[in-house]
């Protein structure tokens, strides 16, 4: 099979290897690294990681599907993940979600046709003190309300 992951990926893994007691512990960092390269994790990439770590591709899939930060489907340039767990929910996350859906013209779990935004629901970002919160790619956006969410989306749109 043709290699899907770059040398850079393998170099990064080489550096990490000594940090862990066994290679299996590298699954999470490997998935992160691969996602950095691809933006998401296609089947072939999961298989290649499995081969590299020495476990069945199925196990990689199990891990990758357990954590919501790994994307098993392609995502847009801006991935907005709104937390809808207890604290955020009590502070209006559902309203934020439906606002975002209307604003972007997509449903939760979908990507806009220009590939700019993907909208997802998140189970607890651990940001209960600043609820409601969302993750936009790697950044936290906290203490949201409809105005600040609107402002954020506008800002990102204009950055393109």
């Amino acid at each position: 099979m043709e290699k899907q992951l770059s040398n850079k990926f393998y170099e990064a893994m080489k550096k990490l290897e000594p940090r862990y007691p066994n290679k299996k512990a590298l699954i999470l960092p490997a998935l992160h690294e691969a996602q950095k390269e691809w933006g998401w994790l296609p089947k072939e990439v999961l298989a290649e990681i499995g081969e590299y770590i020495g476990v069945h591709a199925a196990q990689i899939r199990e891990v990758a599907s357990f954590y919501t930060m790994y994307n098993l489907n392609p995502v847009g340039k801006n991935h907005l993940r709104i937390c809808t767990n207890v604290a955020c929910c009590l502070r209006g996350a559902d309203d934020l979600m439906s606002y975002a859906e209307r604003k972007l013209g997509i449903k939760c779990g979908e990507t806009t046709s220009d590939g700019m935004f993907t909208l997802s629901e998140e189970e607890c970002l651990g940001a209960c003190t600043t609820a409601p919160a969302m993750m936009a790619n790697d950044d936290y956006v906290e203490n949201l309300d409809i105005n600040s969410l609107n402002a954020y989306i506008e800002k990102v749109k204009n950055e393109r």
């Binding site: 089947k43 476990v55 591709a57 199925a58 899939r61 199990e62 599907s65």
Partner: peptide, 20 residues
């Protein structure tokens, strides 16, 4: 000797199935 059944996703959404 073959890891052919998998647990995909988690919690209420979990699916125990074969890979793909």
């Amino acid at each position: 000797g073959i890891h052919e059944m998998v647990a995909i996703k988690r919690g209420n959404n979990i699916d125990i199935t074969t890979i793909d």
